[in-house]
């Protein structure tokens, strides 16, 4: 993928101390079996930073405080005298799972916020996408579009429509014949 031409939003949000927690969080979320290389985890933390840094200052401050909460969650939630990043991966997963199911809105929200941001960035990696079966740049062509069988099936579905919609469907199917790549 091409990088944006304009070099805006050069600011960063997370310092080295925060990134350690980010990496520990990423390991728990995506590499419970330690199947993601450490180097990728470090560059992933930078990607997450790049993602949140265009946001407003209040939101960025909120995200940093939420990360601090995760870091202190073993103590705050489970009275365990350890920082999040110092827990074994298995314990981190257990802790996050309990946060996910928590009936306390804020606790669940912290986990949801970070899982949302980090999942979006993690599964954008072309290698991860290919593992999911996503065809990458082939998405630019609607593969079913060219299938005669699909068009025949479409007309069959069109029978369920009323007469006006049926006619419109036929017109568009015909038009599609000329516009497929």
């Amino acid at each position: 993928m091409k990088e944006p031409r304009t070099k805006d939003f050069l600011r960063t949000t997370f310092g080295p101390g925060h990134r350690v927690v980010l990496v520990a969080l990423a390991e728990a979320l995506f590499s419970e079996d330690s199947d993601v290389p450490e180097e990728r985890m470090r560059s992933f933390a930078a990607d997450v930073d790049g993602f949140v840094s265009p946001a407003s200052r209040p939101l960025r401050v909120g995200l940093v405080l939420m990360l601090r909460f995760i870091q202190l969650a073993p103590l705050l939630l489970f009275f365990s005298f350890s920082l999040f990043e110092n827990l074994p991966v298995k314990k981190r997963v257990e802790l996050l799972d309990r946060m996910d199911r928590s009936s306390v809105g804020f606790v669940a929200l912290v986990l949801v916020a970070y899982r949302t941001i980090m999942t979006m960035v993690f599964y954008e990696d072309p290698h991860e996408l290919s593992l999911l079966g996503y065809p990458g740049d082939e998405r630019k062509v609607f593969l079913r579009f060219q299938s005669k069988k699909a068009r025949a099936s479409a007309l069959l579905h069109a029978e369920e429509l009323d007469s006006g919609e049926h006619e419109a469907a036929k017109v568009h199917v015909a038009a599609a014949d000329g516009s497929a790549e």
Binding site: A28, D33, L111, M120
Partner: peptide, 24 residues
């Protein structure tokens, strides 16, 4: 996009990953 959809899946760690890999 699939990464955006995956972001809303429930679970953590191995459980989350298993769901994401059923995307197709």
């Amino acid at each position: 996009p699939v990464n955006v959809l995956a972001a809303a899946f429930p679970g953590v760690g191995r459980a989350h990953k298993a769901l994401v890999h059923q995307m197709p």
